[in-house]
Amino acid sequence: MNHSIFSLLALLLCLSGCAVTAKHSEPQPVRSTASAVGDNFANVPVEKANDPLLRFNRTVFGLNDSFNNYAVRPFARGYAVVVPLPVRNGIANFFDNLQFPVRFVNSVLQGKLTRSAQETGKFVINSTAGVGGLIRVSDHISGLANVPAEDFGLTLGVWGIPAGPYLVVPILGPSDCRDLVGFVGDYAISPLDWHTLGIIHCAYISNAASIALSATRYVNGLPKAIEAYDQLKSEAVDPYIAMRDAYLSYRAAQMKK
């Protein structure tokens, strides 16, 4: 129930965001100057991000920042004390392995059949030799290492759907219209959510257990996430822009893989 409300909310947020006209300025070519070594770099214009909801986004960014400071960080520190790093890494690997259907389905949807076969190989090997996915054995096998992870946001991009405006989502953080739709799509493909979505009915797995698994995955990722967030903030002169550029550049690079 809660999940369907969230999905609806996500879609509404996205649709309202997408209704805003996208303004994209193409980067101009680098003008070469011979005045000094490397001087031509300074002429590269700043690429304008597609962020028409800037004021709204900055507000949400500020709210998320408070949430991180007063709720997430103390909790994440406590969790990190109780659960040591090697265990957290193992749990993260376990959940990453479980997300295999998401990567497999999206590889197929993008027509990347070799990649979908690699994902299957990774899943089989990490689930068996990697003790149920706790250890990333596949990273040491050439041909199975360095397989770019696909998701539905990337699939939509490959299908030619534009990213739309940049969005900062409450609690979840940076996204854009396309990735928010992708997030909902991947939610349906993720095995962790099959039960709550009514895809499988198993007498031994209750709704509560399914939600508990998702919660474990979220909580386990918090210490790393908050560490990364603090790192970004401590280095940035404008954390909002730093995060926006990092998100958009990272997703653009993923699209090219």
Binding site: A149, G153, P174, D179, F183, E227, A228, L232, A246, Y250
Partner: peptide
């Protein structure tokens, strides 16, 4: 996806 980004940024710590 969102925490994935955080993890990616964290990787830059190295």
């Amino acid at each position: 996806m969102f925490t994935d980004l955080f993890h990616r940024i964290l990787k830059s710590a190295l």
